[in-house]
């Protein structure tokens, strides 16, 4: 890897990069994961479940470490633990998990304890210290064709589910009470979405590592939310940003001595900051300077916004 140089000829660069089978697999897996996480992430941001997403990703670490300890492979561990944790969170806290102080204490404790379990597994599996970093912060080396197939099957499954349940899910996410009266099975959708989220987080974690899932799951989606309020366009933009982030991060990692986690988070966060800054500027220009106090839906008084 030390002898490769990024040249001005982009085509030659890409051809050179893709001559390595591990890079091809990394791009395939990255593309699948980017699409999947962008769509799920858009709903996560809408539903304000970022904290739950974060917890699920932390759960992936003991899962992967435990599975490695048992010799079952990290991907199995990611999926097993993330899906199990999604069910537990759904049963314990339901939709609001993380929104209120007491519930977030519960979710936070679960998260801390699971990371501690991961640490225990790592300590038990003595020769594993260097692998820890890959489980936590991601690695694009050594993604096998079999893993790519697993990810592809999962992505097709999740996309089909989202296509079927998309509209009722959107309804339940914006306005649960009205949706229930209109005949939408809100509770079942909440549980179903948490399962989809668990599966997505597991898929993302296999690329970004357990701790950097946020970069791919939430940031492209949040960027899209800042740019447009239209659902269809938002989803499309979210996918676009996810793909750009993954592709450019993989390329940058290949041609530089710095790790994937750094590039991915930096690119995704830079996009988000640009969009958020642009949105704030636009909003300020559109409205007068009048501040009003509103009561946001989490019931905490005192947040402020500018009146239209």
């Amino acid at each position: 890897m030390d002898d490769v140089r990024f040249s001005v000829d982009l085509v030659a660069d890409v051809v050179q990069m893709w001559s390595q089978p591990f890079m091809v697999n990394a791009f395939r897996a990255g593309t699948i994961v980017a699409v999947l996480s962008a769509l799920t992430g858009w709903l996560v941001v809408l539903r304000r479940q970022t904290f739950v997403a974060h917890t699920l990703s932390a759960v992936g670490f003991p899962g992967a470490a435990g599975a490695t300890l048992l010799g079952a492979g990290a991907l199995t561990g990611y999926f097993g633990f993330c899906l199990a944790a999604a069910v537990v969170i759904a049963l314990l806290g339901g939709r609001g998990a993380g929104r209120h102080g007491h519930e977030s204490a519960l979710v936070g404790t679960v998260q801390g304890f699971l990371l501690a379990c991961g640490f225990l597994f790592v300590a038990l599996y003595k020769g594993f210290l260097n692998g820890t970093s890959a489980l936590l912060f991601g690695s694009f080396l050594g993604i096998t064709g079999g893993q790519v197939t697993v990810l592809a099957v999962l992505a097709v499954l999740v996309l089909a589910l989202l296509a079927v349940a998309g509209r009722p899910l959107l309804f339940a996410s914006t306005d649960a009470e009205t949706a229930r009266v209109a005949g939408v099975p809100v509770r079942a959708l909440d549980l179903g979405f948490l399962l989809v989220l668990g599966a997505t987080v597991a898929a993302v974690a296999s690329i970004t590592g357990a701790l950097l899932v946020f970069a791919l799951l939430v940031l492209p989606a949040a960027t899209a939310h800042r740019i447009t309020a239209r659902p269809a366009r938002g989803l499309a933009l979210s996918v676009l940003f996810g793909l750009v982030a993954v592709w450019s991060a993989l390329t940058a990692t290949y041609y530089s001595p710095y790790p994937l986690g750094f590039w991915l988070t930096s690119i995704a966060f830079a996009g988000f900051v640009t969009a958020a800054g642009g949105r704030a500027g636009l909003d300020r220009r559109h409205r007068g300077g009048r501040l009003v106090t509103v009561f946001p839906r989490d019931g905490l008084p005192g947040s402020r916004r500018t009146a239209p």
Partner: peptide
């Protein structure tokens, strides 16, 4: 009282920096 997405995004990026520094 910061926004969840802002905190989470900043935190992921800072962690990414940490990975860089670790390297």
């Amino acid at each position: 009282k910061p926004d969840d997405v802002v905190i989470g995004g900043a935190f992921a990026w800072v962690l990414g920096l940490g990975v860089l520094l670790l390297t």
